[in-house]
Design a protein around this nucleic acid. Structure first.
Lengths: 342, 342
DNA sequence: TTTTAGCACTCTAGCATTGAGAGTGCTAAT
DNA sequence: ATTAGCACTCTCAATGCTAGAGTGCTAAAA
């Protein structure tokens, strides 16, 4: 693939710009008029012919304008996009919105999803931060009814797991507090293997509790993504390509059902790396269901300690610059929150 | 409005049935053939004319079949629908799915939403059970880093709130445990007003904690619906009426944004009461945005103690019998779970 | 050598026309 | 009370046509 001249790059950029705005094929004329180019439409046509030959543009039919191909978008994102950062006031507004909920993980995940969706006018996802190695912090057992106990397990980082037990004989709160205190002190900072190694020392209720705690910890550690929050699905729906195409609807359905997400999150992260943000355009040949969609993903958190993923997905024809800057900004913001808790 | 003859009722039923299946206008011919009616199409046509006059059917145009009106659906749901209960094996399968997660509120809410969506092939919502009067159960403070504390507040019913505090001076776990124990014993079973009345007795850290707890409790009590879980939005999207109409998409958007839900949940519950299940057809004249949609809602939980709402929303042309029976069944299932915890 | 004016060519979108078929409502016969 | 039969209405799909959009190419201009 040959290198593109400045003018060719410029024209490709403008076509993509205009097509993102209008969702229509772009004609040479339109380009010259709307952007006051110092060129005739004939010249533009020649360049467009070249770009088409190189695979960056395509023509729906002979007498139509040009539409960017996936390759075109990829070139744009990789080489032409100016590296937009979010304007200072937007950053401030967003940070401000988080101010109240910075201490509640579930809260800020929802908030982040909502901001991503609104700003990018696409659908968004946020997964809960996931510790690479789960460590015990604290345990608390609370008597609810006579033979019913509420167990609360706190992990390092502040994640909380809860469960209800039923016992054969009634237990009182004092007994439970004693057990909780003991175990909390003993297990402080340990991982689930270390705790499980001591399992034989316990009996009856204590054994049940210790067993439950290790199981919860093991499960948590092996989860790729705990909670996945989605928002803005209806944004994507209003886009013409989704109204028309059945494929696009299927893709959305798969995302709603979380079947694709797992795969996507683990297998992405190899290409088109733009400053920690990954851009998947049109399924990149790997995901057939995503032919019509683009996905912008970023990890957040402390690498090696606790990380989550967040991102945006919408039609291929999406505003990459803006979306990428939003994703990047939120990723760094949430990273700060994670750093505070871990 | 005159009473309908048996035959008229039968024909109305069949038209609705067939229209739900096919989304097309139904012709007299089709009815006679497909259902082996012992009548000629002419007779059916006469009856259809009458039903149209009475407002239960309408004709998109002269040479088209008939389509049920909102009034028609309402009559159907109110008078004609046979009271389906879910088959025993379906009940068992569903109960079984809940078996593992019956102790984790958040888990079974998600599960319920997913089952509702899949079974009804529409979108579903489940709100968290909400106590009429919130009562204190237990408090726990856990030292995380030197000046950072994780506060965990457990309410009766097992609802858990958490928050992170930062203090001026470092505190150790022993100190915190002492405070937690003391407050837990003192506040056991009290509501937020009772607790707040004692606020003056506390100072410094304790005061901060007590204040936080009462605020959390107050907020929780005044919330109409805490968490609202949505699922199956894309089911609805595949329906033809949503593909075509812009209104329908707007309605979905409002639901996704939760702006309508509040209103809906509080203001419904007056009409079309079918065994505890409320059926709103086409917005019932009150909600303009919902012209194209029907909503089936039910409360669950212990009335007067803790209740939540769950339901299904889809196109007017939805399978009411099945959806209602699913909603009803899940409502009773979740009620059992709530009863176990409160 | 690069750019551009000009023009022939291609394809689509929109419109009017048409005919077939779907489904009705009415009338008269059963 | 029901139904066969038929005239009537309206839609839908197909057809043919035209205007216009946009291109690619060629030859002239810069």
């Amino acid at each position: 693939m040959n290198k593109l001249s400045n003018r060719q790059q410029r024209i490709l950029s403008l076509i993509i710009h205009e097509h993102i705005r209008s969702a229509e094929p772009i004609a040479s004329n339109r380009l010259v008029n709307d952007y006051n180019l110092d060129l005739s439409s004939a010249t533009v046509r020649n360049e467009m012919a070249y770009l088409t030959e190189q695979g960056f543009l395509r023509q729906p039919h002979t007498s139509a304008g040009r539409v960017p191909t996936e390759e075109g978008y990829r070139y744009f994102v990789g080489n032409l996009m100016r590296n937009t950062t979010l304007p200072e006031d937007a950053r401030r507004t967003i940070s401000h919105q988080f101010y109240q909920s910075r201490n509640d993980i579930s809260n800020w995940m929802h908030l982040a999803a909502s901001i991503l969706a609104n700003q990018s006018k696409a659908a968004s996802l946020v997964t809960s931060p996931h510790a690479e190695q789960v460590r015990f912090k604290h345990l608390e057992m609370i008597a609810t009814h006579s033979t019913q106990i509420l167990g609360v397990l706190v992990l390092e980082g502040g994640e909380i797991h809860q469960n209800v037990f039923t016992t054969d004989v009634p237990v009182n709160q004092e007994e439970l507090s004693r057990i909780s205190n003991k175990l909390s002190t003993q297990f402080q900072g340990k991982n689930y293997l270390e705790i499980r190694a001591t399992l034989d020392q316990y009996m009856d209720l204590e054994k049940t509790i210790v067993n439950w705690a290790t199981l919860e910890m093991e499960q948590t550690e092996n989860l790729t993504a705990g909670e996945v929050i989605l928002d803005g699905l209806t944004n994507v729906l209003a886009e013409p390509e989704f109204i028309e195409s059945d494929d696009a609807r299927k893709a959305l359905k798969m995302i709603e059902e979380r079947t694709l997400l797992q795969d996507l999150i683990t297998r992405s992260g190899f290409k088109d790396q733009t400053n920690g943000v990954q851009v998947l355009i049109g399924g990149e040949g790997t995901w057939d269901e995503l032919k019509q969609m683009s996905i912008i993903l970023a990890k957040y958190g402390l690498p090696g300690v606790a990380t989550g993923t967040l991102g945006v997905f919408g039609p291929i024809r999406m505003s990459y610059g803006h979306s990428i800057s939003i994703v990047r900004f939120l990723s760094s913001l949430l990273s700060d929150f994670v750093a505070e808790q871990w």
